[in-house]
Design a protein around this nucleic acid. Structure first.
Lengths: 223, 223
DNA sequence: CGGCATCCGGGAAGATACTG
DNA sequence: CAGTATCTTCCCGGATGCCG
């Protein structure tokens, strides 16, 4: 842990510019994205951000902690590991992540088949849900992604996603984030993915199929 | 104009990550911010972004043009100068600028007394307006900032800002963006600023005073 | 003068290796 | 597992110069 040097600032009163002073460095906002669904440890952050190097991750976590966006916490024993979590103010950055995500899906250069973290996938359900299509639906969808589990609770015309135990959900998806994304955003049939061993769907298959229609991608920007 | 090299990408299917591929480089989003109220020429962009160097501005404009966010256009003669303007998709990034701006004003490190561009000030009125305080108000506020003019049209419970001729507005502010910001966000009395020659208010002074109360700053984030 | 291209120095990011 | 140390690469910022 060392002292920050003369942090290159925009020196601009505009809030947008100050936001970039805070989270404009490379990887900073993606680190925050990965913490949006709850605390994580260093090695999980590193694994979920392919391409980041350990020293850059250390620098970002130090910087975000110094600005009051991230806090490091020691979990109580047993398993007294150190985790990083967003502060309340850090969690308030979610609208930024959402606005960026929604806007960028209109990019002709956006490639949904690239690698994807489990957190990104769950956040994308928050971002991309279409209220028209969600209306009237009430159910719980479970996700088993590697060792992590999540639940999407559909009620009151909204899809809410969070970490949680999927047992008892109406349907459960098991597979890598990329496979679930292929089904939801790529329109790849479950059977195709199941045949590859990439995806397993348990419980109400009709519900699973309907779930995959709730998140339409916007049109690509033309010129 | 040269070919882009291997642009360092996050290679992540997440929309947020792709957005950062598009506008995550230093200055990129601030260039777009400066174009949000209409086309500008190179030298105006450079002047309104203190600290940017000409070559970086060139690189950003080239990059934004290549990704389809900015277009360069030749104004018809006379005065056939070249200007840069956002594409439709580029203008759709305004919610991002807004979300960043709103969020960052909660930062304890935010200093509203720093330099500010006229565009930033006008956009901040869009971002920070409080519907409760605006309700019932109907008027037109003019701004003369250097050689640029703007109008804030208040109607239907909303403040709309754009470039425009302020003649005939109910009240007109004349001064630097920093002076107007000091009045609106810093609570500095008009008289103080007028005594310094920093601000002039013409027309309905009561309206001007009320206008300055429409944009409350949120509480600072505490841990 | 506006709109760049070129060259240079410093510093941040990326990759790899190493340590408690 | 959670970082640190080192080295290399590349981007950013500043200065200068070209060219319509």
């Amino acid at each position: 842990m060392k002292l920050e040097k003369g942090t290159r600032s925009y020196r601009d009163a505009c809030g947008t510019a100050h936001a970039l002073d805070l989270i404009g460095e490379r990887w900073a906002l993606l680190v925050m994205r990965e913490l949006m669904l709850g605390p994580k440890r260093f090695s999980d952050l590193k694994a979920d951000l392919p391409g980041i190097s350990a020293n850059v991750l250390t620098q970002r976590l130090d910087g975000l902690e110094a600005t009051g966006l991230v806090r490091r916490r020691k979990l109580p024993p047993p398993g007294a590991v150190q985790v990083y979590e967003l502060t309340d103010w850090g969690y308030e950055a979610e609208p930024i992540v959402q606005a960026l995500g929604r806007w960028a899906t209109r990019s002709p250069g956006h490639d949904p088949s690239l690698p994807l973290s489990a957190t990104s996938l769950m956040l994308s359900f928050r971002t991309m849900q279409d209220p028209e299509r969600v209306r009237g639906l009430e159910s719980r969808i479970g996700f088993q992604i590697g060792a992590e589990t999540f639940v999407a609770a559909i009620a009151g015309g909204r899809v809410r996603t969070e970490r949680g135990d999927p047992t008892g959900a109406d349907t459960i998806f098991t597979g890598a984030p990329e496979a679930i994304a292929a089904a939801v955003y790529g329109g790849v049939p479950f059977e195709t993915l199941a045949a590859q061993g990439a995806l397993m769907v348990e419980g109400d298959h009709a519900l699973a199929r309907r779930f995959a229609t709730l998140f339409p991608l916007p049109d690509k920007a033309g010129t």
